[in-house]
Design a protein around this nucleic acid. Sequence first.
DNA 1: TTTACTGCAAATCTTTTGCATCAAC
DNA 2: GTTGATGCAAAAGATTTGCAGTAAA
Lengths: 140, 140
Amino acid sequence: MDKPRDMVSRLAELGYRLTPQRMLVLAAIENSDGHISAEEIYVQVVAKYPHVNISTVYRTLDLLTRLGLVTETDLGGGRVRYHPAAKGHHHHLICQQCGEIIDLEESTLSPLKKTLLQEYQFTADLRHLGIFGLCQKCRQ
Amino acid sequence: MDKPRDMVSRLAELGYRLTPQRMLVLAAIENSDGHISAEEIYVQVVAKYPHVNISTVYRTLDLLTRLGLVTETDLGGGRVRYHPAAKGHHHHLICQQCGEIIDLEESTLSPLKKTLLQEYQFTADLRHLGIFGLCQKCRQ
DNA sequence: TTTACTGCAAATCTTTTGCATCAAC
DNA sequence: GTTGATGCAAAAGATTTGCAGTAAA
């Protein structure tokens, strides 16, 4: 449903040029599990189009973020990760031992969001949430 | 109650040297509101002891973290923040507009922690949590 | 006196930027 | 042909590291 085509046509609609570099960045994000970093995108893109520069990846990510087509998540560790906005928000449980990233359903956080609003008058933007801890396997 | 003295004596107990640089880093962390960055610590330390180098601040923070005397929180934005472990865990609501950091009571997150354990078998370490959004003032 | 700790400079890592060239439209 | 997009190289910001000198114990 949320094929790169959608982001591509959105870019075209808005008058942005459809360069091969952009197509490849879009494809990498779309085919990822939703937790891809700029470096990882770069590696995928270079594999098919050896001349791209990583600054182009960053510029494309910046553009897509500004247009609201992708969402940035800073899970700490000094690396920002990206996923397609059209796939909907999701949250992340990050295992501090093995590094596994588990997706969390949005509904799990609804009660928290409500509490923050009622008790702290704070409108939480939970798109950017990462929760650290230990997964089942590593807990033992 | 949790005066730098406690961390100082712990360091001494463990055989670490009590240098003026370390004392000043400890004091800065202790006197902070609990969301201090390495750079901010450095500025405070330099004011009293002009020759310190920021790498000493980082090395001290690394030591204190490894000893469990301070806790690191990565609130995103490429800057890690520190607070004394003895002051207990607390969580942060960060306003994306004005940058205000609001402390959150630990109890607010207890229901979430329980849900994550029951439904995802994930043991959340909520010491490292930052929630982004908009504070009351900026919401309007 | 011993050796852990420090200062300094240089390196690392991620991300950003200036600028001349290039290609999508 | 225009002008936005790219490649390259250099910069920027946070953090780390190698090394020789210094000071805490």
